[in-house]
Design a binder for these strands. Structure first.
Lengths: 150, 150
DNA sequence: GGATTAATATTGCAAATGCAACAAAAATGC
DNA sequence: GCATTTTTGTTGCATTTGCAATATTAATCC
């Protein structure tokens, strides 16, 4: 059984750490870039879905989003149809920040894939998508209090 | 350019979240399992190297290790040759906890690889190892204050 | 050998993270 | 239509996380 967990953990922490350092220039504190890019790409998203996408606790997402709002990167708008939800939209400031984040992420991605052929990169993406799909089932199960048999 | 960053981030956060929930039974708080497994597998390790292995800030590692010591999972021993370093060793309690962590990690790994052939799993590991090697160069560079050109 | 630099460890702060608990609106069941 | 459950959002509290700054020993440079 190949142990891919540790590799994935190391890669994720290293890249996240790099991003957090580099995004300080944009006045974004730890983790906020994760939320902002997704809100820019899918305006109107609600925070519950965003937490699911990112795989983070609901309350963590709530506070990160609150900070983004306080610092003028995004705004929350009430929905007339459904008074329970608040839709998230980037402000002009948020939209201005987006290209910077995208460029940094693209660079990190290129660094990560260095030395791999086009074909290998495609394979990596495909395998990772499958792994992610597998893992998110368990994540939702355990998050809701489920107990895994091992 | 395939965007593997987000997939890796999602997978890592989901698995880490699952582990943190499941290891509460072992009285391990957030992240501590990462350090404990490695100390069990490489007794005598020093905390600086451990932080590098895990890809986490030195001070974060310092405090996680301090907690593990306070709760009796590991102990720090002074080195006679080099008075600068402290070597880390699991206590009997730590060693008792190790198999539980290993079993959980193995299970998560199996879940992650579900639906992949033996060959695909091997490929995934190989690609991830390469990606990790690529990424750790930049991590160390940026951690030391280096500025990446993007 | 003495001065400078690097490696290792620690502490002070400020901030993010996440569980528990709560609230309110919507969806579902009968 | 009403009771129950689910969805979505928030706040309190304890904890981890990480940057900056400091201390101490070891290693390197002339």
């Amino acid at each position: 059984m190949e142990d891919i967990l540790r590799e994935i953990g190391m890669i994720a922490r290293a890249l996240d750490s790099i991003s957090n350092i580099e995004f300080k220039e944009q006045e974004l504190t730890k983790g906020q870039y994760l939320y902002l890019v997704r809100i820019c790409e899918q305006p109107g998203l609600i925070q519950e879905k965003l937490a699911e996408m990112i795989k983070v606790d609901r309350t963590t997402a709530a506070r990160a989003i609150q900070k983004l709002e306080q610092h003028g990167f995004i705004e929350k708008r009430k929905d007339e149809r459904n008074r329970k939800i608040k839709r998230l939209f980037p402000t002009p400031k948020g939209q201005d920040t987006y290209p910077f984040i995208k460029r940094e992420n693209d660079y990190s991605n290129a660094v990560a894939l260095a030395g791999l052929s086009e074909r290998e990169a495609k394979t990596a993406l495909k395998l990772l998508q499958q792994i992610r799909a597998n893992v998110e089932v368990d994540w939702e199960f355990v998050k809701k209090g489920g107990r895994r048999p091992y």
